[in-house]
Amino acid sequence: MKASDLRPRTNDQLKEELGNLRKEAFNLRFQKASGQLQKTARARQVRRDIARIKTVLGEKQAG
């Protein structure tokens, strides 16, 4: 997911996607704790996607 893909979306769409990613991050943390996490890189990718969405939301509020 790129920031340029996120900018045309509405705030509601971004907030919905942010909620979905937070749920996924929560589930990935549980999988890691129980030793069932297969794709370890996915946790890092989800964290970065969350940060991208929060950045775009901040830009929209400031501008």
Rank of each mutant, 00 (worst) to 15 (best):
M1P: 13
K2E: 02
K2L: 04
A3P: 02
A3Y: 00
S4K: 11
D5E: 15
D5Q: 15
R7H: 06
R7V: 15
N11Q: 09
N11G: 14
D12N: 11
D12I: 01
Q13T: 09
K15M: 06
K15A: 05
K15Q: 09
E16R: 10
L18P: 04
G19M: 00
G19E: 06
N20T: 06
N20H: 08
L21G: 06
R22K: 14
R22P: 00
R22V: 07
R22N: 06
K23F: 08
K23V: 09
K23T: 11
E24S: 07
A25V: 05
A25N: 08
F26V: 04
F26T: 02
N27D: 13
R29I: 08
R29F: 11
R29C: 06
R29D: 13
F30H: 11
Q31P: 02
K32L: 13
K32N: 10
S34G: 01
S34H: 03
S34V: 09
G35N: 07
Q36V: 07
L37I: 12
L37H: 05
K39M: 12
K39H: 15
R42N: 02
R42W: 07
R42M: 07
R44D: 14
Q45S: 14
V46M: 05
V46C: 07
V46R: 07
V46D: 00
V46Y: 02
V46F: 05
R47Y: 10
R47V: 09
R47C: 10
R47N: 13
R48W: 04
D49P: 08
A51Y: 02
A51T: 10
A51V: 09
R52I: 05
I53C: 03
I53P: 02
I53L: 05
I53Y: 02
K54M: 15
T55P: 00
T55K: 08
V56Q: 00
V56W: 01
V56A: 02
V56F: 05
V56D: 04
G58I: 04
E59I: 07
K60I: 10
K60V: 08
Q61A: 15
Q61E: 15
Q61F: 10
A62D: 11
G63W: 00
